[in-house]
Design a protein around this nucleic acid. Structure first.
Lengths: 141, 141
DNA sequence: ATTAATTCGCAAATGTCTTGCATATTGTAT
DNA sequence: ATACAATATGCAAGACATTTGCGAATTAAT
């Protein structure tokens, strides 16, 4: 399990630092929510780095293979990614405004132990999402 | 939130009972894991009901709109569906053999209360998946 | 049996994501 | 600085799930 999504970490492992890689890494470090290929592609264009979508896909594939990112399946249309560093948190997805908040509380310890004991299932990673209505949207309605 | 995925329930609400609907409902009642459009399409063909994929998609859409099914995003390639009746359980997805097991233990009560209290987020539904290695695959390796 | 509403099949299209291949770029050794 | 090997990039083409329009077929109730 590879954490530490930084340029120096990548360099240390002998990976090349390209413009795209530099920016994508930066975006994931700052991101407070999972990002999709489309979002990254648009963001890159915005900062004047017009890169091909294929390259974005390959970069995501690369960072995922290297263990820096994990896939998150929040919606059926496209795959989102987030830094492995953030893996032990959960998402609050507002179905009204689409906002994504995080819960860092790492629960489920008991349940996980149960699962291993009763089922013999070894958990490598988990995905916990809550779908509902955020505070702001609740107020408005 | 509509439960009770049965033909009588559908009839009572004035929906037509077609051959496809009948079989699809039956398959979801018996299913012990989430099903995809492709799986249903193949299963229907197997029992001699060669139906168009579009129809399968529309049937899933229909049953979801009516609240009988929920979408489950287990993998990036396609959407799975399961009966709303089963919503309060979680999935164990073996990344080696692909088998999907269930945990009916409904945890997360505490965390959910936390989330409502601290964030004001009202949870409508949740999705909890554990990815790892099932007992059988553990043994083999 | 007639009819209105719904469903179905077919064809076409959308959008995400993948792949092959030729070219360009990066890091390193010289 | 230069040349080389490995890797990254762009472009075109394609795979696949999913959606939509429309005319034909089926369902349920009169």
């Amino acid at each position: 399990m590879n954490s530490d999504l930084t340029l120096s970490s990548l360099r240390d492992k002998g990976h090349k630092i390209t413009n795209v890689r530099k920016e994508v890494v930066g975006m994931f470090s700052q991101a407070d929510k999972p990002l999709t290929a489309q979002e990254l592609h648009k963001a890159l264009k915005t900062i004047g780095l017009s890169v091909n979508k294929t390259t974005v896909y390959r970069e995501l594939q690369f960072l995922t293979d290297q263990g820096y990112l994990v896939e998150v399946h929040l919606n059926p249309k496209e795959t989102s990614y987030e830094s492995t560093d953030l893996m032990h948190h959960h998402h609050l997805i507002c179905e009204t405004c689409g906002k994504i908040d995080n819960v860092t509380n790492c629960l489920a310890k008991e349940l996980e132990e149960d699962v291993l004991k009763k089922k013999g299932f070894e958990i490598a990673r988990r995905s916990l999402e809550f779908y509902g209505t955020c505070a702001d949207c609740s107020k408005k309605s």
